[in-house]
Computed example of a mutant assay.
Amino acid sequence: MNAVATPGVGLTILCVALVAATAAVYWVAQLGPVSVAPWAATRAVVQLAVVALVLAAALAHLWSSMLILLVMFAAAVFTAARRARAGWSAAWLTLSLGAGLATTIPPMLVSGVVPMVGVAVVPIGGIILGGTMTGTSLAARRALDALTERRGEVEAALSLGLTDRDARLEIIRATATDALLPGVDQTRTVGLVTLPGAFVGVLVASGSAAQAAAVQVLVLLGLLLAQSCAVATTIELVARGLVRRTPAYPS
């Protein structure tokens, strides 16, 4: 089966045309600086070229594949911490991301459903890590925003005899549902509204719709568990005051 896209002159011309068209839309509709699309495209090309070279070597061995996942985990922690706008206290979100991965990746490997080879572990681990990072950062940011905006309600709960943790939980528990909603909606609408990357990737590579569907179901259900554990851990960290908004990060 031929690949959907292969490096060459045709692909280059098409990509340049797509970026130019995007820049034109930015200019005509005044959506922002015209350089946004070309700069983003340039970064994407450079980053993916580097990643492709690294992965080509790393995926040949399990130990190097695990090292790649470790680097991705560190980048995810940094990104989630920055998005949470909680200063140094956001380092605690490492526990959230760790909880998400620890509850999903080991069972997949131990069961043998995901073979313990780099070419399988890195893509699936990366997808789950990315979704977990999004849920974690969203949960932390919304919980901290809620505590800032509804400070009076927290104080009222404290006056009724609730502990600091319980008073905060009363306010931020609803934000957990909001943080989990994107992942739940993706699972509900898969195949009807969207065809996620894992499905398309396996379909293009193998040509088997059944295998593509199986991989996508595994990834989506793994994401549900990983995000649930990560968000639950994040809410607990915020409720206990370990992750908190600092003066340098106003709401």
Rank of each mutant, 00 (worst) to 15 (best):
N2S: 12
A3P: 00
T6P: 00
G8W: 09
G8C: 10
V9C: 00
L11H: 12
L11K: 04
C15I: 12
A17W: 10
A17I: 15
L18A: 10
L18H: 02
V19Y: 04
A20V: 14
A20L: 14
A21W: 14
T22W: 11
A23S: 13
Y26G: 01
W27L: 13
A29Q: 14
G32Q: 11
V34C: 04
S35C: 03
A37D: 12
W39I: 13
A40E: 01
T42D: 00
T42S: 12
T42M: 13
R43T: 08
V45Q: 09
V45K: 09
V46Q: 01
Q47T: 15
L48V: 09
L48N: 02
V50P: 04
A52Q: 08
L53P: 00
V54I: 15
L55W: 06
A57T: 13
A58H: 04
A58Y: 03
L59F: 08
L59E: 09
A60E: 15
W63A: 04
W63G: 02
V71Q: 02
M72R: 02
M72A: 15
T79R: 10
R83I: 09
R83N: 06
R85S: 14
A86F: 07
G87D: 11
W88D: 13
A90R: 05
L95S: 12
L97H: 11
L101D: 08
A102R: 02
A102Y: 07
T103Y: 06
P107T: 10
V113M: 13
V113K: 09
P115F: 04
M116F: 13
V117W: 03
V117C: 01
G118M: 07
G118S: 10
V121Y: 09
V122H: 11
P123L: 09
P123Q: 07
I128S: 03
I128Q: 05
G130V: 07
T132V: 04
T134S: 12
L138V: 11
A140D: 06
A143F: 06
A143Y: 08
A143E: 11
A146V: 07
L147K: 12
R151Q: 13
V154D: 04
A156Y: 01
L158I: 09
G161V: 07
G161L: 05
L162F: 14
R165H: 08
R165C: 01
D166G: 03
E170V: 01
A176P: 04
A176F: 01
A179E: 03
L180P: 07
V184P: 02
V184H: 03
D185P: 00
Q186R: 15
L192Q: 08
L192K: 03
L195M: 14
L195D: 09
L195S: 03
P196F: 06
P196N: 10
G197C: 03
G197I: 07
V200I: 15
G201V: 07
V202S: 03
V202H: 08
V202D: 11
V204L: 12
S208I: 05
S208T: 06
A213T: 13
A214V: 05
V215T: 10
V215E: 11
V217S: 09
V217G: 03
L220M: 15
L220Q: 12
L223N: 03
L224C: 06
L225A: 15
I235E: 06
E236F: 08
L237S: 09
V243E: 01
V243Y: 05
V243F: 02
R244S: 07
R245H: 03
Y249P: 00
S251P: 00
